[in-house]
Amino acid sequence: MPSETPQAEVGPTGCPHRSGPHSAKGSLEKGSPEDKEAKEPLWIRPDAPSRCTWQLGRPASESPHHHTAPAKSPKILPDILKKIGDTPMVRINKIGKKFGLKCELLAKCEFFNAGGSVKDRISLRMIEDAERDGTLKPGDTIIEPTSGNTGIGLALAAAVRGYRCIIVMPEKMSSEKVDVLRALGAEIVRTPTNARFDSPESHVGVAWRLKNEIPNSHILDQYRNASNPLAHYDTTADEILQQCDGKLDMLVASVGTGGTITGIARKLKEKCPGCRIIGVDPEGSILAEPEELNQTEQTTYEVEGIGYDFIPTVLDRTVVDKWFKSNDEEAFTFARMLIAQEGLLCGGSAGSTVAVAVKAAQELQEGQRCVVILPDSVRNYMTKFLSDRWMLQKGFLKEEDLTEKKPWWWHLRVQELGLSAPLTVLPTITCGHTIEILREKGFDQAPVVDEAGVILGMVTLGNMLSSLLAGKVQPSDQVGKVIYKQFKQIRLTDTLGRLSHILEMDHFALVV
Rank of each mutant, 00 (worst) to 15 (best):
E29N: 12
L241D: 02
D234K: 05
L220C: 04
G153I: 01
C272V: 15
T150M: 01
A114W: 01
A24G: 12
K247M: 15
A48W: 09
L124I: 06
D79T: 14
L77P: 03
L105V: 15
V10C: 13
E29Y: 12
I142K: 02
R18A: 14
L105Q: 01
A157G: 14
K137G: 07
P41C: 12
A231V: 09
I261W: 01
R121C: 00
F112G: 02
G116W: 13
D79V: 14
D133A: 04
T262P: 02
V206R: 03
D198V: 03
S147A: 05
Q243I: 06
E4R: 05
N93T: 05
L181N: 01
N212L: 14
P273V: 10
R161G: 10
H22C: 14
H65F: 03
L210G: 06
V160C: 07
R125E: 09
A226H: 08
V178A: 11
T68S: 13
L210R: 02
E37T: 06
I143H: 00
E213V: 11
S27M: 15
E176R: 03
M89W: 01
K119F: 02
K137W: 07
S199H: 09
E171D: 11
V204A: 11
R164C: 13
G185N: 02
K94T: 15
T257N: 07
K271H: 13
E34T: 10
S73P: 12
V90N: 00
E131T: 04
S202F: 06
S217V: 01
A237C: 12
M173I: 10
T236G: 07
I95V: 12
K247I: 15
N225P: 02
V10K: 12
G185C: 00
A158C: 02
S19V: 03
V206I: 13
A107W: 01
R266A: 07
S63W: 00
K97L: 13
E40M: 06
D129W: 06
I167R: 08
A71M: 11
F112I: 06
V90P: 01
L230T: 09
C103F: 06
K82E: 11
L251C: 09
S19T: 05
C52W: 03
I92P: 00
G259L: 00
I167Q: 08
G11D: 10
L28E: 10
H203Q: 09
E34A: 05
T13K: 09
E40I: 11
L251F: 07
